[in-house]
Each structure stands twice: as C-alpha cells, then as structure tokens.
C-alpha cells in the first residue's frame, strides 16, 4: 500500500466476519431505516481496516441498499473517515484559538519534528506516524488536547511530547 493511495487498493470484505455482521445487525435494530446505520457501519470498516477504501464503501453500500456514489458523498463530508492509509499512530492536535493562545502551534511543531513527519498530513518515512491539525476538540480548558488514534490526551505541552511518543508502540 502506498502512503498516498486514493482508496483504490484491493480490500478484504469486513462484514463477512460473523462478529462484524452481528454488530451491524444489532445497530440496524435501533433505527427505522437502513441508511441510519451508515455512519456506524463506516466506523466499523475503519476500525477493522484502518481506513475506508472504495471497496469498503461498496460493501457498505450493498448491505444498506445505497449506491456507492451516495456512500462516497457521505464519507467525504466528514473529516474523521480516512480515505487513504494513515500512519500506525494518527496524531491530531487542536490548534483552534483557545488552544492556540496556550501554545498549540509549538506542540504541533514539536510533534512534526520528533515523529519525523516534517509536514502536516504526511506519513513519517517509517510509516508510524501521521500528524494533522484539527479544529476544536472540545477540551479547551485542558489545552492542548491531542488525539492519537482513539486515545485522547489532555494538557499536552512541548515538554511532554517526547514521553508521549515514547509510550506509543
């Protein structure tokens, strides 16, 4: 897989596994329409595969009786679905004003340097990291919040960056 593919790589189906299928069926039982399960289904694809490829979108479309084009339209609206592979540790740093006035840009620069990413949105040469800036993470009083995959770390300062990166494996 290339670091900057566009979602065209072959992609194993997700919902042929019994557990994933049962999870989706449980979700479907909560809503009066199949379409309402679209966001949750895409979350399952991303959890299982690390990103949402065109094949993943097609599989979800078929299960929920939607068209692949429709599903892609929804995927591209939301910022959290990855449309290409990302580093093993996907690092999101809030730099909106409340965190910005507390030094968030310095945290971003420290992360870019120490992960070897160099640039926002670019995977590090070892494939371990991708660092991006995000808009308000809703933890403004705990500046600067950093999300690494599904983990949320409050109060990150430049000084804490080396220890945080060392804890990731």
């Amino acid at each position: 897989m290339s670091a900057h593919g566009h979602g065209t790589e072959p992609h194993a189906p997700v919902f042929t596994a019994a557990a994933a299928r049962a999870e989706l069926d449980d979700i479907l039982s909560r809503y009066p329409t199949k379409m309402a399960a679209l966001l949750p289904a895409l979350w399952i694809v991303q959890r299982e595969r690390g990103w949402v490829s065109e094949d993943g979108m097609r599989e979800v479309a078929e299960l929920l009786e939607l068209t692949p084009a429709y599903v892609k339209g929804v995927v591209t609206f939301y910022t959290m679905y990855h449309q290409h592979p990302v580093g093993k540790h996907f690092v999101q740093v809030c730099t909106t004003s409340p965190c910005n006035v507390c030094g968030a840009e310095d945290v971003v620069n420290a992360l870019l340097k120490q992960t070897g990413c160099g640039e926002l949105g670019v995977m590090s040469p070892d494939g371990k990291y991708t660092v991006i800036e995000v808009e308000c993470l809703g933890a403004c009083g705990f500046a600067t919040p950093v999300m690494i995959n599904e983990d949320f770390i409050d109060g990150v300062t430049v000084e804490r960056v080396p220890a945080i990166l060392a804890s990731l494996e």
Binding site: M35, A36, L39, L64, E135
Partner: peptide, 21 residues
C-alpha cells in the same frame, strides 16, 4: 450515535440529517 467530525452537525437539523445517514 457517534458523529464523524463536522462542527455543523451541532446544528439541530444537520444533526438529524447526519443521524439518518
């Protein structure tokens, strides 16, 4: 119901659209 990254979904009618998929 988990959102997927969009400030606008805090607007109530956008939220309903998002919930509907």
């Amino acid at each position: 119901h988990r959102g997927a990254g969009a400030y606008i979904c805090g607007e109530e009618t956008a939220m309903m659209n998002s919930l509907e998929g």
